[in-house]
Nucleic acid binder design. Structure first.
Lengths: 147, 147
DNA sequence: CGTGAACGTCAGTAGAGCTGACGTTCTTCA
DNA sequence: TGAAGAACGTCAGCTCTACTGACGTTCACG
């Protein structure tokens, strides 16, 4: 034990950072054949979640800024995975939808990303992996408004 | 309810990202009174781990680049928390040590950061928190050389 | 209508970290 | 002894990610 200082390897911040790094790398490898990044997959996922989201709604669901969403959609539109259509009901808005190619890519890329997640969780037993996912969900989504 | 798409909130990457964001925020709040960031605390922790580390050794232990360590130490030296001394055995190296003030800050800041971690883990029962930490350690430190 | 807000867009900026080059110092081998 | 090569710390510059602020367009409310 203790190749690094014991104090450091016990810090949650350190562990979280390196866990994310490892998963990001696995994900990038898995997604490379589809020409998309993990963030772009997340955008596709959000757009597939329900019909006809505006850019701002999609940004809110993803938890990113609206200006960040512009760049994402520019890229995805360039790859013909999504399409922006003016909203007939409110012409300030763009309705963003998946193209057929986008839907195909989403399906296959999600499967690849699932495999990457399984690889990420490989050091854990199946039951532990489930508990880990649940715990992560609890701490990530917890709203501490009254700190 | 489901404010976000169910698909998205189940993605590990998304959960990991937001978990890290929340912990980083809690940590920043806890550390603010001491005038240091979470990363700077990590550097202090590494330096306290053993006597007389060179900058490069410290960088390797922290998992950052040597050039990044230069900037960290510049800042910490400016706060009089660490001191660089030329290594008498090898004058290419700087030996980096905590100052007394640095040691004090480390002790108090670590306690504050521990409190932030407890707050972060608040949505989990004590036993779950322990399992979560162990699982995180397993997946973060796992070496997948043969992907 | 006309004022104010919402939406999408763009330029500029900030933080974090890395790459590459440089001078200094040590090591090794002839 | 001396010369080539490596290690260390430093710095400038770059990349990546995401945000802030400002702008034009479009809607809503009086």
């Amino acid at each position: 034990m203790s190749t690094t200082a014991p104090e450091l390897s016990g810090r949650l911040g350190h562990l979280l950072k390196h866990a994310q790094l490892r998963l990001a790398e696995l994900n990038a490898q898995a997604l490379a054949p589809f020409g998309i990044s993990g963030r772009e997959l997340a955008v596709l996922l959000v757009l597939a979640g329900q019909e006809a989201a505006s850019q701002q709604q999609a940004a809110a669901r993803l938890g990113v800024d609206r200006t960040t969403m512009v760049a994402f959609l520019d890229t995805l539109e360039g790859k013909a995975l999504v399409a922006r259509r003016p909203d007939p009901d409110d012409r300030r808005r763009n309705v963003v939808v998946l193209t057929p190619k986008g839907a195909d890519t989403l399906r296959e890329a999600t499967a690849a990303s699932d495999a990457a997640e399984r690889c990420f969780l490989a050091p854990l037993a199946a039951a532990d992996a489930g508990r880990f996912r649940a715990a992560l969900q609890a701490v990530a989504l917890y709203d501490d408004s009254g700190t």
